[in-house]
Write a protein that binds this DNA or RNA. Structure first.
Ligand SMILES: NC(=O)c1ccc[n+]([C@@H]2O[C@H](COP(=O)([O-])OP(=O)(O)OC[C@H]3O[C@@H](n4cnc5c(N)ncnc54)[C@H](O)[C@@H]3O)[C@@H](O)[C@H]2O)c1
Ligand SMILES: NC(=O)c1ccc[n+]([C@@H]2O[C@H](COP(=O)([O-])OP(=O)(O)OC[C@H]3O[C@@H](n4cnc5c(N)ncnc54)[C@H](O)[C@@H]3O)[C@@H](O)[C@H]2O)c1
Lengths: 219, 219
DNA sequence: GCAACTTTGTGAACAAGTGAACAAGCTCGG
DNA sequence: CCGAGCTTGTTCACTTGTTCACAAAGTTGC
């Protein structure tokens, strides 16, 4: 076992790396070879100091007086994010949302491919969703092994989500993206990220409400 | 103008209120009348101290030695979040994702209703999506006025997102939920929240990659 | 009425994240 | 080769968020 301690990258930074990646991809498409921290910051909607600090965590890729080399920085961010290879994903729940995600082609250029979609509902099993055929939930262990899946996407009803999470963990999946409005309980070492659209709407509503109250107050 | 200063509620707390609301709804459905901060914390996946501190920002609703009164606390959180009335929303972009969201019935019990869905594509205008008919993007100002819409949901391609955001702002919408992978530039006072599934996947991939590297190191 | 027990509300320590500021380092024109 | 002009990398003070720990306030049983 090595005593080398990998540099700790703050969570906040990790969450911004994909944004920088996207901006750099746009710059590269435009044929831009160089970009300063301020230009990158403008595109990413943050400030320059943050960009410089974020990038400094994983080495020195910029040139003072010039800026960053777009293709080089893009490559380094991709490497850091593990985008040098493809990540096979499985979607559990072939409903409205699960089908939309499965049909969506936009993940491929970010390094993700949905290789299987599954459901318990016998009336959905066997049906086509985009280029995939819905398989039965029971086959999860085999599917995970077959495609060496490391990411599971839960798009079932909230009631079924914990159950599905347990099955994913049992099958060896340690990264879960959960769209169901439920708090998942998983063992240590398994990472869950929640995407809850209703929560986002409620945060917007909270601020709208406050705005309305303040305006009423002033008038 | 009043000199009364509304208590400042931290952003982190606001983001957790909807989770508490959901947990309280579940408790209420189970007929539970009381809940302690620890029980609520367990359900919400946080710790008890956080729950107590969060709730303390907007007044004292608990009883020492007993806990919180479920229906009462639920009511107060709903009031704080502006869930006492309904929020009409418009979806721009009647594609894969926009249609899935429009058809989804789950927002209603959280106080949101999608009252219109719009697109520029003439081949989509007039078509039915769930109970709604797709209207042409150009009618946005009238639609916003007609339904008194305060929340706009962008589900167009990334290339069109900034343009749509400008139109929403122009029409008077000040809260935007953006699903397109693009950084939107909006005037001061307009609130944008981004939902980017690809970023979530990339964060999961980052940790998977690190995990793989650490394991390789140990062996 | 009182002692034992439970749970809240909050001050204070700690941890994480942000942003201004600036020295250090690079480029380029002359 | 030098000095003017940029831009990075990093330090430092500040803000925001989390957690601990415990007094205060309530309940319950006797
Ligand atoms: N549709 C949306 O726009 C939207 C938006 C935000 C959140 N969500 C959330 O995403 C989830 C899915 O939404 P939806 O609209 O697709 O619902 P849906 O009812 O259309 O689909 C749910 C699917 O999950 C399947 N399922 C149920 N239990 C299962 C199990 N144990 N194993 C495998 N599959 C199972 C069902 O058979 C069904 O096909 C819900 O939790 C919802 O709250 C949806
Ligand atoms: N589908 C998914 O599962 C998914 C997941 C994550 C993110 N997204 C993002 O959500 C967005 C939509 O995805 P999608 O799969 O629904 O794409 P889509 O191509 O199916 O739909 C986009 C729709 O937007 C419409 N549109 C384009 N420009 C417009 C304009 N100026 N005004 C009004 N409408 C306009 C198009 O006509 C089309 O109907 C994309 O930005 C995508 O990256 C989608």
């Amino acid at each position: 076992m090595s005593t080398f301690r990998r540099r700790v990258i703050p969570d906040a930074t990790i969450a911004r790396l994909p944004i920088y990646q996207r901006c750099l991809m746009e710059l590269e498409e435009d044929g831009r070879k160089k970009a300063s921290s301020e230009q990158l910051a403008e595109l990413a909607g943050v400030n320059g100091a943050k960009v410089r600090k974020d990038l400094s965590y994983f080495g020195t890729y910029g040139t003072r007086g010039v800026g960053y080399d777009v293709p080089h920085l893009l490559h380094e961010i991709r490497r850091e994010l593990g985008m040098t290879h493809d990540w096979p994903c499985v979607i559990i729940g072939a409903g409205n949302l699960g089908s939309a995600l499965a049909k969506f082609g936009g993940f491929v250029d970010r390094g993700f491919s949905v290789v299987a979609i599954m459901d318990v509902d016998q009336s959905k099993v066997g049906h086509q969703v985009g280029s995939l055929t819905v398989r039965h939930e029971d086959e999860l262990p085999e599917v995970v092994k077959e495609f060496d899946i490391s990411i599971g996407i839960i798009t079932t009803t909230a009631a079924a989500a914990q159950d599905v999470a347990d099955q994913l963990v049992e099958a060896g999946v340690r990264s879960i993206l959960n769209f169901a409005p439920a708090t998942l309980d998983v063992p240590y070492g398994v990472l869950v990220r929640d995407v809850d659209v209703a929560i986002e709407l409620q945060i917007l509503a909270f601020h709208e409400e406050r705005r309305a109250l303040s305006e009423a107050e002033i008038v």
